[in-house]
């Protein structure tokens, strides 16, 4: 549905040049939700803006729904853009228009009769759950409601593709979740292809089918979300993944952690579950087989892309030899084991 082939974007300011995108190759299949993640300044915005040619790529091909975007003339581009919806971080609604009139704008361009516009706008208002705010002005709405209006507006001309430029970045976590749920619903119900860019791994984890990492204008890794969580190799990818699982050692334990094993203290381990981890009750199995106690200090296990991910911090209480055997048992079952230190019990 969306294909970028060898896309480069170079900005020139006076004598200085800035290479914002470097040889980007990207393929987004129809009806998928594809996320591009990267830190600020990585070129994410530039990347998404080249797709509907808000930014003209310096070289390379941009193909959307079979159209070579860079080869279109101005008039053709305008018509094709109507079939590519876009939503933004700051919503970009018209403050002079009501919710209803904002959603009606793309329909006015198609010269539809008033009754048809009204019917379509009401349908969209229902889809985004804002029937009761039709006559409100954007300034009277919350951030989440504004983004819903923007989504309805973007969907008005029945696009095949929806581009989301940091669409949830200025929303609070709860509102972010509701907007993501709405996007997921739209994707499933309307068969819409969604390309989103974000700096939050949570966004990718909760709705994306596929993901790519962008760093300093390069696409460093891309694949399905379940593959990504399990197999991503670059440090950058691991950092993003770790950012979603933040586990800290509880303070009262921290005081009792030492770096060395004395035989009197017990290992504190961080167990990492990835897409390749065998789906078995490993903790209780290990406990039974090796006759050790496993004291879970904190845990964060979630599902993303159809597989289990996460990590937990646990204290392995038992004989040294048995603890070591348990460690090997975990590794055999594709659990990443990291010994953080040794806890001395009073």
């Amino acid at each position: 549905m969306i294909e970028l082939i060898g896309v480069n974007k170079i900005y020139k300011r006076g004598k200085k040049t800035f290479h914002a995108l470097r040889d980007i190759n990207l393929h987004v299949e129809a009806k998928k939700i594809f996320g591009v993640i990267g830190a600020s300044g990585a070129g994410k915005s530039t990347l998404i803006r080249t797709i509907n040619l808000l930014e003209q790529p310096s070289s390379g091909e941009v193909i959307v729904n079979g159209y070579h975007m860079t080869r279109l003339d101005k008039e053709e581009l305008r018509l094709i853009r109507r079939k590519i919806g876009m939503i933004f971080q700051h919503f970009n609604l018209l403050t002079s228009r009501t919710v209803f009139q904002n959603i009606a704008l793309p329909l006015e361009l198609e010269n539809l009769p008033k009754e048809k516009i009204d019917a379509r706008v009401n349908e969209l208002l229902h889809l985004v759950g804002l029937e009761d705010r039709a006559n409100a002005y954007p300034s009277q709405l919350s951030g989440g409601q504004k983004q819903r209006v923007a989504i309805a507006r973007a969907l008005a001309s029945s696009p095949k593709v929806l581009l989301c430029d940091e669409a949830t970045s200025s929303l609070d976590p709860q509102t972010t979740r509701s907007i993501l749920l709405l996007l997921k619903e739209i994707n499933a119900r309307l068969g819409l292809t969604i390309l989103l860019i974000t700096h939050e791994m949570d966004v990718v984890k909760s709705i994306c089918d596929e993901v790519a990492i962008l760093n300093e204008g390069h696409l460093v890794e891309q694949g399905t979300v379940s593959w990504f969580f399990g197999n991503a190799r670059t440090d950058l990818a691991r950092n993003f993944i770790d950012s979603t699982f933040q586990l800290n050692i509880p303070e009262e334990y921290l005081a009792r952690v030492s770096a060395e094993s004395t035989g009197q203290n017990f290992p504190l381990v961080k167990l990492g579950f990835t897409g390749t981890t065998v789906d078995k009750p490993l903790i209780s199995e290990a406990s039974r087989i090796f006759e050790i106690d496993i004291n879970i200090l904190s845990a964060d296990i979630e599902y993303a892309g159809g597989a289990k991910f996460g990590c937990l911090l646990a204290e392995l209480i038992g004989e040294c030899r048995q603890c070591e055997a348990a460690r090997r048992f975990f590794i055999e079952h594709h659990v990443q084991v990291e010994i953080l230190g040794y806890i001395t019990n009073d």
């Binding site: 808000l54 305008r78 094709i80 109507r82 876009m86 933004f88 609604l93 793309p106």
Partner: peptide, 8 residues
């Protein structure tokens, strides 16, 4: 941006 993306 929004206006351009909508094809005005």
């Amino acid at each position: 941006d929004a206006a351009n993306a909508m094809g005005l």
